[in-house]
Amino acid sequence: MYRYLIRRFLLMIPTLFFVTVIVFILMRMIPGDVVVMKLVGEGADVTEEQIEIERENLGLNRSYPVQFLDWAWGALKFDFGKSMLTGDDVSRDIKIALPASLQIAIMATLLSIVLAIPLGTWAALRQDTWVDYCVRIFSIAGLATPSFWLGMMMIIGILIITDSQWAPPFDYIPIWEDPWYNLSMLIWPALATGYRYSAVAMRMTRSTVLEVLREDYIRTARAKGLLERIVINRHALTNAMLPVVTVIGMEFAFLVGGLVVTEQVFNIAGLGNLFVDSVIQKDYMVVQALVLLVAFVIVFMNFMIDILYAWLDPRISYA
């Protein structure tokens, strides 16, 4: 088991390496110039010579392999360099953006688990009844509704309900500094994204529970005279959770870096926003670090899901 885990963990390294190489190459193929963005701004009168000096200062005149190796060596020491646009430490940029994105992802995941597993199971147990129909309508609506649109509707709804006297805060403060202010800002994007997220997990829960309920071992358990509660909780749900865990884990990884429009709707300076801005402005250093971070989250979540598989299903052995 431990050897498997170590092997899986070590496999993360080449995966992350190849991801960064690909991103490094792709970023340099996109037209646009970070130096022009940096110096020209709103039409500043900047000479070609000044642009060349800045390009030299940023190390952009070096060969691509040298640039990559320099960056990779820094990344190995957790030094992701400085933003080419602002000169800020990339680590600091991430440190500012990560907590909000992570918090929304955690809150949305919790919401999703709380909604999806009980409702999905209930719908499966009451298949083709009004309960099932309601849950299915609720989940299909969740899948069909973009999170950012729901977010905008939430803000408009709040303004209408409060007669334009209240709206969520638009400047992020970490939860450890002001929990109430923080929650009154982030609960809305968490609800907006958590709804779609829970819809995905709810449908998965329903279908896998339905599948498991038709298995021989469930019939056996019932024939043995076990209480229905025990049959469902201990035998059906535990086995049905494997694909649900996969969906939840993958969605979590997506939420950490992928909430671009929702972050814009609620004015959250999160990772998704930082990512898109950096790509648009061709801020290579920030993009490379963010890709590495998001790739790490995805690979790590996969790793965690594998561990959970073994825990949930004793038949799975990595020995």
């Binding site: 303004l159 006297q165 709206a167 638009f170 709707v265």
Partner: peptide, 13 residues
Amino acid sequence: KQSVYVAALESGR
């Protein structure tokens, strides 16, 4: 985003 500062002005934030 314009929608943000319009909502912020409207709500008095």
